[in-house]
Simulated assay, not measured.
Amino acid sequence: MDLGSIYFWDSLKKDVDKAIAIKTMGHDQIISDLKKALCSDFPDTPIYTFGSRIMGLASDGSDLDIYVHAYGNDVYTDKPTHTMLTNQMKIANAIRMSSENWIFIRTVDGMCPLVVVRHKPTNIMCDISFSRKISADQNNLVNYIFELQPIARYMVTYLRGWAQKHGLTKFRGHIFILMVIFFLQIRGKLPSIKDLQANLPPNFGPWKTNFVKLGLSSFNMKTVALNESEVRNILKDFFGYYSEFNYAQLIVCPWLGKELRRTMIQAHMPSGSQRYYCLYVSDRHAIIVQDMMHLNQNKAFPIAQHDLRSFKAKCKDMKMNTK
């Protein structure tokens, strides 16, 4: 929906309300059925849900992300261990043996192995992970940020639909979450992730996945009013900011919450992440959107220069053509 449309606000509210309804519906049956399927190999194992359905950003057809906190997952590794790959096989076999409630789809290899399944009673596709709880922890942080500044959820919801409409397929929801958070930090509406993690020790290898829940008043900030005028204006400001952002020189860095040159990243990262210096200054990245917790990851690595040019042009159009 165009920002200037008379239907803009009603349409956006409808999308947000629907996503929040999905978030609050609960997924107890899915978790219960999964625990039943895994009880022999993974008794009393904690299971967490995360992803767009849990952040209030989903549509009816969205997948549910599930994390199984299996044995061996507390040790940080850059690559999947033999134990993790064994767990993948066990989960896949358990799903196959539980055909009453589950349909096995496939396994996915890579840095974060998955078992992809469908839950029959709800017809919801599920991506089951079991190697890193950091993704679930990131979702907890995003949900907290959405509570601090509810306008952030409205912005991400709008931007996902806007990107889809304009064929900006490489700009996915998780990228917009980080870009929106960073933009609101730049505008003095949100604290940095560094401030939310101040004085906390790393708890997953070199990374911090926990944070302190502080109100905006602790940072001398206020909640942005949630109404049609404010949302329209802040989205226009978002488009203006990113239409002129110096992507070749700067990093979208929610951890620091301020503009940072690529060449300065090593000096500003916490101990333990400096060895990833080469990732950030590499000219091969059209855009660098740093993960909030896994600080050696560029979440926008699939975006090529032509994708970025299209994005900047569309942002400029939105800035110029919105009253």
Rank of each mutant, 00 (worst) to 15 (best):
D10W: 07
S52E: 12
V156Q: 05
L184I: 14
V212H: 03
L57C: 09
V117M: 05
A198R: 01
V180Q: 06
I251M: 14
P113E: 07
P206S: 15
T223W: 01
A304K: 06
F182W: 08
S98L: 02
D291G: 07
Q305V: 10
D291M: 04
S135D: 12
L196I: 02
R153L: 11
K222A: 14
I54Y: 05
A58Y: 03
T45N: 04
P80T: 13
I30V: 10
P206E: 15
H294G: 03
M89K: 05
Q197G: 14
V142G: 14
F42T: 05
T169K: 02
T223Y: 04
E259S: 10
A70W: 00
R275Q: 10
N140P: 03
Y280T: 02
Y154V: 11
A248G: 13
C278D: 11
R262D: 14
S135F: 04
E147F: 14
R172C: 14
G272F: 06
V142A: 13
V75S: 01
D65H: 00
M1N: 14
M292A: 02
Y158V: 15
Q290V: 11
Q297W: 11
I181F: 12
F245L: 12
M269W: 02
A92I: 03
L114W: 00
Q88I: 01
L34S: 07
S282C: 04
I95L: 01
N246H: 13
V68H: 02
I54L: 04
E259M: 02
R153F: 11
